[in-house]
Amino acid sequence: MLLPVTDTDGAPFWEYARRGELRVQSCDDCGRLRFPPRPCCPYCRSFRSSWRQMSGRGRIWSYVFPHPPLLPDYAEQAPYNVIVVELAEEAGPEGGRIRLVGNLVARADARLDSVDPARLRIGAAVKAAFHPVSEEITVVRWLLERP
C-alpha cells in the first residue's frame, strides 16, 4: 500500500486522523474552511488558522472504478472504488462544502473491494472511519450510513 506523503501544512490533518478525528483547516479571521491545507487563506489572505473538528458525515459527490488499476499495488483489489465525499459542514457564509477523496469500504480495516460496486450511489450518506496503515499514518475511509 502506498502511504500518503505529509507536508508541513497537512501534518495536523494526519495527526488528528491518527487520533480518530476528522479535522479541516479553518481561517481564524474569516472562519472559512479550506482543504487541502495551506499556509494562507485563499479568501481573506490571513495566515492565522486552526483545525476545526468535523462531524465525519457527508455524501458521495462522485465516484470512479479505476480500470485498469492505476497502481500495481492495488491490482489484486480491483475493481475498487475511489469516491469524493462532500462533507456535511458548510465551508463558509456563501455555502459550499469541503470535498475529500477516499474509498468506500465495508468496515475501516476492510479491503478496498469490500463494497459491491452496485451499492455506490451519488448522494449516498457516508461516515468517516479511520484505518491505521503504519505507526504514523491513519487514513480516512468511508462507510455507508445504511449498510
Score class of each variant (00 low, 15 high):
Glu94Ser: 08
Ile60Glu: 11
Phe47Leu: 15
Leu87Cys: 02
Val115Tyr: 05
Leu22Tyr: 01
Arg107Pro: 00
Arg121His: 13
Leu112Asp: 06
Asp113Asn: 15
Pro66His: 06
Ala128Arg: 08
Ser114Arg: 09
Leu100Met: 14
Val24Cys: 01
Glu136Gly: 12
Gly123Arg: 09
Pro68Ile: 08
Ser55Met: 04
Pro72Glu: 12
Leu100Tyr: 03
His67Ile: 11
Thr138Phe: 10
Ala129Glu: 11
Asp28Thr: 05
Ala118His: 07
Tyr63Glu: 08
Cys41Asn: 05
Gln77Leu: 08
Gln25Glu: 09
Arg111Glu: 15
Arg119Glu: 14
Pro117His: 10
Ile60Lys: 10
Cys30Lys: 03
Asp113Trp: 04
Arg111Trp: 13
Phe35His: 15
Val105Arg: 04
Cys40Arg: 15
Asn103Gln: 14
Tyr43Cys: 08
Tyr63Ile: 08
Glu145Trp: 07
Leu70Thr: 12
Ile83Trp: 00
Pro39Phe: 12
Pro72His: 05
Phe47His: 14
Ser134Leu: 07
Gly96Cys: 02
Cys41Tyr: 01
Asp28Trp: 04
Ala108Glu: 14
Phe47Trp: 15
Asn103Lys: 12
Ser62His: 06
Arg48His: 15
Arg19Gly: 08
Asp113Cys: 10
Val101Asp: 07
Ala110Asn: 10
Arg34Met: 08
Ala129Cys: 14
Val115Pro: 06
Leu112Ile: 03
Phe65Lys: 03
Ile60Ala: 11
Ala125Arg: 15
Arg38Glu: 13
Phe130Trp: 09
Ile83His: 04
Trp51Gly: 03
Glu136Cys: 08
Val24Gln: 01
Glu136Met: 10
Ala128Leu: 06
Ala118Pro: 09
Ser55Pro: 06
Ser49Cys: 10
Arg18Ala: 15
Ala106Trp: 05
Ala88Phe: 00
Cys40Lys: 14
Leu100Ser: 04
Glu135Tyr: 07
Cys40Phe: 12
Arg59Asp: 13
Pro37Trp: 03
Val84Ser: 11
Ala118Val: 10
Arg32Ser: 02
Cys30Ala: 02
Arg23Asn: 05
Val133Cys: 12
Ala91Trp: 01
Val85Gln: 01
Gly95Trp: 03
Tyr74Ile: 03
Leu22Ser: 04
Ile60Met: 07
Asn81Gln: 10
Gly92Tyr: 00
Val24Asp: 02
Arg146Ala: 13
Leu22Ile: 02
Val64Ser: 15
Pro132Leu: 09
Val64Met: 14
